[in-house]
Design a protein around this nucleic acid. Structure first.
Length: 1004
RNA sequence: GCUCGAGUGGUGGAAUUGGUAGACACGUUGGACUUAAAAUCCAAUGGACAUUAGUCCGUAUGGGUUCAAGUCCCAUCUCGAGUACCA
C-alpha cells in the first residue's frame, strides 16, 4: 500500500464533516478549553501560506487538548464587513454581500483542504444580521450607560438621572466631556427633555461629538493619517481638508486605568503589552490654570495646561499653544495678527504627520498676549508653535526651557529667557531633563526640595490658590465610532429634533438597506443617504420609506455605519452560543466557557482590535453580561511569513524635442518615452538615485550606455523625466536560477511589450534571452506578486505535508521567509512514517513486544513532543518526529504498541495520515480523542554516558563511562587514559573538573 | 530618537539550568538500484591546513566574568517591528 495522500485526506475530511468529530458541547463534564484564532477578513485574493501558520499552530494545540481529555472549543468565522468589498462594489456595482459570500466560500474551501478541526456549526459572520443584531445591542447598552468613578464601573444611565433629580451634577464623579456646566436638582427638573438629553449625552459611554477629521470631498469620506500623502489622498491624489463632523465616539478613556492595570493579569507577549501601555500613555502631573492678562485682551480668559513637572513651575518663561487652539484668535494682539495668521496658514499646510516627523525645524509666532504666573504674578508671553499638538492634553503647554529640551530649543531660537530652577546644574548647552537627581532652586517655597516633594507641595499650593490640581493624563483618546461607509453595521439610531434615540432592542436587527450606489450622496452624506427606505416608524416599529418622514411618528435614521472593529470586539463570546436568537449567548454557555484559553494572531492588532475588544469585555463585565474582566488568558503572536519578491530594474525616460523651460512651445513638442530594463549589475552601478541631481554623471551614463542602443535622435532631444524603479516580477515565472525569459514576461505584461532590456555589458537582449531578476524579502502580498497559495502545495504534497512544513519553518513567533524548497523534506518524512506501518504487502505491524530501544525512542519522543506543544515550539517537535521515525526504521520496529502511540503523537500535526494509520491498526473510531500516550521516565534510564573530555575547555575526545561511577573513579580512569597522557605531554594538570553525567574538563 | 525583537554553515533552523556548537531538514557532491528517469537507499558536507593521525579558526564586532560562554556582563554595529515633538 502506498501513501496516497489525496485519497486519505479527502476521506478523512469527509469523515470529520459527516461525524461532526470536532463539535464542541456546551454541556459537558469534561474540563473546557477554548482555542481561538483571529478570524480573517475574507479578501478576494484568497488564503496565502501566511494565513494558515497561526491556524495550524492553534489546531495542533486544540487537537492535543482533545487527546488530553478536554472539551475543546475551536471555532472559526469571518470578519466580513470591510472596505475592500465596498471598493469592489463601487467599481463594479456588485453588491458587497455577494462578493463577500463568494470570498467566504473560497476561504472555506481552502481551510477545509488543510484539515482544521474547527467546529463549523459555530461559524459567525459579522455581516450577518443574526450576528450584528448583537453588535447593535451592545451599542445600545453603551448608550444607556455612564462611568461612575466612585464605583469604578459602568452603570445604567438611570442611576445618573436619579442623582441629577435629587442633587444635580455637582457631586457626580463621572467620566464625561470636559465642558460640563454645573446644575442643581431644581434646574435639572426644570430642563426640557431635549436639554436633558443633551446633558446625558455628555456622560454616555457612546456619545455624539464634534470631531476634527481628514475629510476628502472628492472621495466623500474621512481618511486615516496614513491614507494621506503630502496633503492629498493616497488614492487618486485628491485634496484633503480638516473638517469638523458630528460622529459617534466611544468613551474608552473611562477604562484607561483598568486597561493598563489588568495587563498584569493576562499572559500576553510583553512587546504587545508594552505597545498597549504606550498607547494608553498614562502620565501623572498637574493641571494648572493661567489667567490671560486682561489688559492685553478685551476680556479675561484662562488657559489650562497639563504638566508632568509642576515642581518646575517657577521656571516657566513662556507658554505655547497649538496653532489650532481656540483662544489663539481671541488673544492675539492686532500688531501680531499678521504674523500669527501667516504662521497658522503655514502649519495648516503641513500634515499632522509631517509636523511630527520634523523635529529639527523650530517654528512659532508670538501672539502679543501675556498670561499671569499663578505665583509670581509676572507676565508670561504666549506663543504658538506647531510642536504643541491640539489633540493632546489641552493643546497648550507651560514652557519650562531649563527642564525640557523642546522648550529649551524653542526659547534659544526665539531668544526667550531661560531661568534656571535647578541647584548647581549647568544649563548653558542643553536642558536638564533628569528628575531624580536634583534639588529645586530659585523657586520661592519650593527651594531646596527634591523632585517628589516639590511636586507634591507645588500641587498643594496650586490647589490652595485655586489655580490647579493634581491630575493623571492619558494619551488614549476616545475612539471615533462612525464611518461614512456602506458595508458596515447600521446604527440602531433615529433622530428626533436632532437628538439621537435608540431603537428598542426587541426590534433588532436593523438591517442594512439597499442602495443603488455605494458612494456618498451628492450632498456629501454617507452612502446610506442613498437609501430610499431608511426611516423609523415609531408606531409600527419598523423601517419605512423615507417619504413617510413627518418627524412626529416617522423619523430619519442614522446614516453612518459602524467601524470594522465593532463586530470583532465580542465575537469570541458569541462563538460560545452563536445561534442563540434570544440573547447574545445563554448564561449556561458563558458560564461554562468563560473566556478564551489560547488566542493566536498577529501583533499588528495590538492597539486596535486587542484594545477595543478588552474595552468591550470590561464594559460587558461591568454590566454583568460576562463573568470575566479579560477575554483571553493567553495570547501568542504568530510571526508573518515573508515572500521573496523578484524585481526587474527599470529606467523610465521621457524625452522631448523642445526645451522644458520653453513654456511657449512645450505643449507643441514631440515626446518619446523609453522603458529600459537594465541588468542588476548595471543598476547597482548607476551613480545612485542621485542621477537627477548629478547631471554630469548621468550624462556620462547616457553617453556610454543608452545612446548606442536606442534609436533616438539625441541631438534634438532633451531628457525631461527620468525615473528609476524596481518593478515586481511575478515569481511564478522566475526559475530557480533567478531568471526570467524576457519574452515570457512581456507576454504576461503587454504594457512592457516595447521595453528594451540591457545585459551587463549594455547590449540589447533578445526576447528569448534570460534576464536575471533581483530578489528581496518582503511581506507576502498580492500586489507584490510574491504570494504562494497553499492550494498548489496541498495538491502536490497534501495537507499533512503543508502543516508539518509550515511548523518546521521555524519558531511560531518569528517572521520567516517562505521557500518551498524544503517541502520535500516533510513530505519524505510522511512517506517514511507510512512505510513503518505498511508496505506493498499490507500491514507490517505485529503483536511483538517492544524492544528496549523501541521504548526508549518512543518515550523520548513523548516527552519532547508534549513539552514542545506546551511551549508552542512546534518546529522542534517536527524534527523529533523525524528522529523517532529514523530510529524506529533502523530498529525495524513492528510493535503495534509502539506504532499506536506514535500515531497519536503525530495526529495533532498530521491528522489525516494519523487517522488512516489508526484505522489500519484496527480502530473503528476517530483518533481525535484517543488518550495522549503517557510518558514513562523509566525507559530513558541510562547506565553509561559518553563523556566529552575537554582540555582547557576544548573537547578532545570522548570516553564511555558508567553513570554510577564516582568522581574519584572517573578522574582516575581519565587520567590513566592514553589520550589524556598524549594531550598533557607530561604537564601536570592544575585542576580536573568533573560534573557527573555532563562533562570532564582538565585544566593545565 | 525611544521601545521591543533578532544576528549561528550555501539555506531554514537546533542547542530547555553556562557543560560535546551546527540536531533535524533542504541544497550540493559521490555511490547503489534502473535500459533510462522518477522514487528509494548508502556515504560525505562549517572554514583552512593536513588528507592517516591531527592542528588551527569559527555563533554580528570588540572587551570582560568563568575550569567552561551561542547562552551571563559591558560597549559597538547591522537588520526587522512598533511608535512618534505626549508637555
Amino acid at each position: 500500500m502506498n501513501y496516497d495522500f489525496k485519497e486519505i485526506e479527502a476521506k478523512w475530511q469527509k469523515y470529520w464533516a459527516e461525524n461532526q468529530t470536532f463539535k464542541a458541547e456546551n454541556n459537558s463534564d469534561k474540563e473546557k478549553f477554548y482555542v481561538l484564532d483571529m478570524f480573517p477578513y475574507p479578501s478576494g485574493a484568497g488564503l496565502h501560506v501566511g494565513h494558515p501558520l497561526g491556524y495550524i499552530a492553534s489546531d495542533i494545540y486544540a487537537r492535543y487538548k482533545r487527546h488530553q481529555g478536554f472539551n475543546v472549543l475551536h471555532p472559526m468565522g469571518y470578519d466580513s464587513f470591510g472596505l475592500p468589498a465596498e471598493q469592489y462594489a463601487i467599481q463594479t456595482g456588485q453588491h458587497p454581500a455577494i462578493t463577500t459570500k463568494t470570498n467566504i466560500n473560497r476561504y472555506r474551501e481552502q481551510l477545509d483542504k488543510i484539515g482544521f478541526s474547527f467546529d463549523w456549526s459555530r461559524e459567525v459572520r459579522t455581516s450577518n444580521p443574526d450576528y450584528y443584531k448583537w453588535t447593535q445591542w451592545i451599542f445600545i447598552q453603551l448608550f444607556n450607560s455612564w462611568y461612575n468613578n466612585n464605583t469604578n464601573k459602568a452603570e445604567d444611565i438611570s442611576t445618573l438621572i436619579q442623582i441629577f433629580e435629587k442633587e444635580g451634577n455637582a457631586t457626580v464623579n463621572a467620566v464625561s466631556d470636559d465642558d460640563i456646566s454645573v446644575f442643581t436638582a431644581d434646574e435639572w427638573n426644570a430642563f426640557n427633555t431635549k436639554k436633558q438629553q443633551e446633558i446625558l449625552l455628555q456622560y454616555r459611554l457612546t456619545y455624539l461629538a464634534e470631531t476634527e477629521v481628514n475629510w476628502c470631498p472628492a472621495l466623500g469620506t474621512v481618511l486615516a493619517n496614513d491614507e494621506i500623502i503630502n496633503g492629498v489622498s493616497e488614492r487618486g491624489g485628491h485634496p484633503v481638508i480638516r473638517k469638523k463632523m458630528t460622529q459617534w465616539s466611544m468613551r474608552i478613556s473611562a477604562y484607561a486605568q483598568r486597561l493598563l492595570d489588568d495587563l498584569n493579569t493576562i499572559d500576553w507577549p510583553q512587546p504587545l503589552k508594552d505597545s498597549q501601555t504606550n498607547w494608553i500613555g498614562r502620565s501623572q502631573g498637574a493641571s494648572v490654570t493661567f489667567n490671560v492678562l486682561a489688559s492685553e485682551a478685551k476680556q479675561s480668559h484662562q488657559i489650562d495646561v497639563f504638566t508632568t513637572r509642576p515642581d518646575t513651575i517657577f521656571g516657566v518663561s513662556f507658554m505655547t499653544l497649538a496653532p489650532e487652539h481656540e483662544l489663539v484668535a481671541t488673544i492675539t494682539t492686532p500688531e501680531q495678527k499678521a504674523e500669527v495668521d501667516a504662521y497658522i496658514q503655514a502649519t495648516a499646510k503641513r500634515s499632522e504627520r509631517e509636523r511630527m516627523a520634523d523635529v529639527k525645524t523650530i517654528s512659532g509666532a508670538f501672539t502679543g498676549a501675556y498670561a499671569e504666573h499663578p505665583f509670581t504674578k509676572k507676565p508670561i508671553p504666549i506663543w504658538i508653535g506647531d510642536y504643541v499638538l491640539a489633540g493632546y492634553g489641552t493643546g497648550a503647554v507651560m514652557a519650562v526651557p531649563c527642564g525640557d529640551q523642546r522648550d529649551y530649543d524653542f526659547a534659544k531660537h526665539f531668544n526667550i529667557d531661560i531661568p534656571n530652577v535647578f541647584e548647581g546644574v549647568d544649563i548653558s548647552e542643553e536642558a536638564y531633563v533628569d528628575k531624580e537627581k536634583t534639588i529645586i532652586a530659585n523657586s520661592d517655597f519650593l527651594n531646596g526640595l527634591p523632585y517628589k516633594k516639590a511636586m507634591k507641595l507645588a500641587i498643594y499650593e496650586l490647589e490652595k490658590i485655586g489655580h490647579g490640581k493634581g491630575k493623571i493624563n492619558y494619551r488614549l483618546r476616545d475612539a471615533v465610532f462612525s464611518r461614512q461607509r456602506y458595508w458596515g453595521e447600521p446604527f440602531p439610531v433615529y433622530y428626533v429634533d436632532g437628538m439621537p434615540q435608540m431603537i428598542d432592542a426587541k426590534h433588532l436587527p436593523i438591517t442594512l438597506p439597499e442602495v443603488e450606489k455605494y458612494l456618498p450622496t451628492e450632498t456629501g452624506e454617507p452612502p446610506l443617504g442613498n437609501a430610499n427606505v431608511w426611516a423609523w416608524c415609531t408606531k409600527e416599529n419598523k423601517v419605512v420609506d423615507n417619504s413617510e418622514i413627518n418627524n412626529e411618528t416617522v423619523f430619519p435614521l442614522e446614516l453612518n455605519t459602524m467601524p470594522g472593529w465593532a463586530g470583532s470586539s465580542f465575537y469570541f463570546n458569541r462563538y460560545m452560543d452563536p445561534n442563540n436568537t434570544d440573547a447574545i449567548f445563554s448564561d449556561d454557555a458563558i458560564n461554562y466557557w468563560q473566556d478564551v484559553d489560547l488566542y493566536i494572531g498577529g501583533s499588528e492588532h495590538a492597539t486596535g482590535h486587542l484594545l477595543y475588544a478588552r474595552f468591550w469585555q470590561k464594559f460587558l463585565f461591568d454590566k454583568g453580561v460576562v463573568p470575566k474582566n479579560e477575554f483571553a488568558k493567553k495570547l501568542i503572536n504568530q510571526g508573518m511569513i515573508t515572500g521573496t519578491s523578484a524585481f526587474a530594474y527599470r529606467l523610465l525616460m521621457s524625452w522631448c524635442n523642445v526645451d522644458f523651460s520653453d513654456h511657449e512651445h512645450f505643449h507643441s513638442g514631440e515626446y518619446f518615452t523609453n522603458e529600459l530594463f537594465i541588468s542588476k549589475k548595471l543598476w547597482d552601478n548607476i551613480p545612485d538615485n542621485r542621477v537627477k541631481e548629478n547631471e554630469e554623471e548621468w550624462n556620462n551614463y547616457v553617453e556610454k550606455m543608452i545612446k548606442p542602443v536606442l534609436d533616438i535622435p539625441f541631438n534634438k532631444l532633451k531628457l525631461i523625466v527620468l525615473e528609476l524603479n524596481s518593478i515586481h516580477v511575478d515569481i511564478s515565472i522566475v526559475n530557480s536560477s533567478n531568471e526570467i525569459i524576457i519574452g515570457e514576461w512581456k507576454d504576461k505584461n503587454p504594457i512592457y511589450k516595447e521595453a528594451v532590456f540591457l545585459d551587463d555589458n549594455g547590449n540589447v537582449m533578445k526576447n528569448s534571452d534570460s534576464y536575471i531578476v533581483g530578489r528581496e524579502v518582503e511581506k507576502m502580498s498580492k500586489s507584490k506578486y510574491n504570494v504562494v497559495s497553499p492550494d498548489s502545495i496541498c495538491e502536490e504534497y497534501g495537507a499533512d505535508s503543508l502543516r508539518l512544513y509550515e511548523m518546521f519553518l521555524g519558531p511560531l513567533e518569528q517572521s520567516k521567509p517562505w521557500n518551498t524548497a524544503g517541502i520535500t523534506g516533510t513530505h519524505g518524512f510522511l512517506k517514511k512514517l507510512w512505510r513503518l506501518y505498511l508496505d506493498d504487502n499490507g500491514a507490517k505491524f505485529t503483536d511483538a513486544a517492544p524492544t528496549k530501544d523501541n521504548l526508549k525512542t518512543l518515550h523520548k519522543t513523548i516527552k519532547k513532543v508534549a513539552e514542545d506543544i506546551e511551549n508552542f515550539s512546534f518546529n522542534t517537535s517536527v524534527s523529533t518526529f523525524m528522529i523517532c521515525v529514523n530510529e524506529l526504521s533502523s530498529q525495524k520496529c513492528t510493535s503495534k504498541e509502539i506504532l499506536e502511540a506514535l500515531a497519536i503523537l503525530v495526529s495533532p500535526y498530521a491528522p489525516h495520515i494519523a487517522e488512516e494509520l489508526w484505522q489500519q491498526l484496527g480502530h473503528s473510531t476517530s483518533i481525535a480523542t484517543a488518550p495522549f500516550p503517557k510518558f514513562d521516565a523509566s525507559h530513558l534510564v541510562e547506565s553509561s554516558k559518553e563523556y566529552p573530555v575537554s582540555f582547557n575547555g576544548k573537547m578532545r575526545f570522548k570516553l564511555e563511562l558508567p553513570l554510577d561511577m564516582s568522581k574519584d573513579e572517573i578522574e582516575a580512569t581519565v587520567m590513566a587514559h592514553e589520550k589524556t597522557i598524549a594531550q598533557l605531554q607530561g604537564r601536570e594538570p592544575k585542576k580536573v573538573i568533573i560534573v557527573p553525567g555532563k562533562i570532564i574538563n582538565i585544566v593545565g
